[in-house]
Amino acid sequence: MLSYALTFAIACFAMALILNLIRLATAPTKPDRILTIDTMVINVIALIVLYGVQTQSSVNLDAALLLAMTGFISTIAFCKFLLRGGIIE
């Protein structure tokens, strides 16, 4: 049962990534594009963690943690850039 649920979750997040790619290609505004990239980062984190469950190792969790941090910082940096034209004030 667990393996079916795991496959279902991985398929869901993979489909979510495909939907995000479509959105990224057709996004009408710049904030939309940043939002899509942010969502893609979150979905990739989920995929990494689920892969870790499948292989029963917690090695990949470090990568997911780093991705969570850099993804957040890059979202904020992109927004800052749009708001002020520079990142460091």
Binding site: A5, A9, A11, F13, L19, P31, L35, N43
Partner: peptide, 25 residues
């Protein structure tokens, strides 16, 4: 665990679907 996985996958998919479907930024 299975319920959590199914719920998590569904909500992740719904979030991305909403990103694609909703009309206003």
């Amino acid at each position: 665990i299975s319920a959590l996985l199914v719920i998590g996958g569904s909500f992740g998919l719904i979030g991305s679907l909403g990103l694609l479907k909703l009309p206003e930024p």
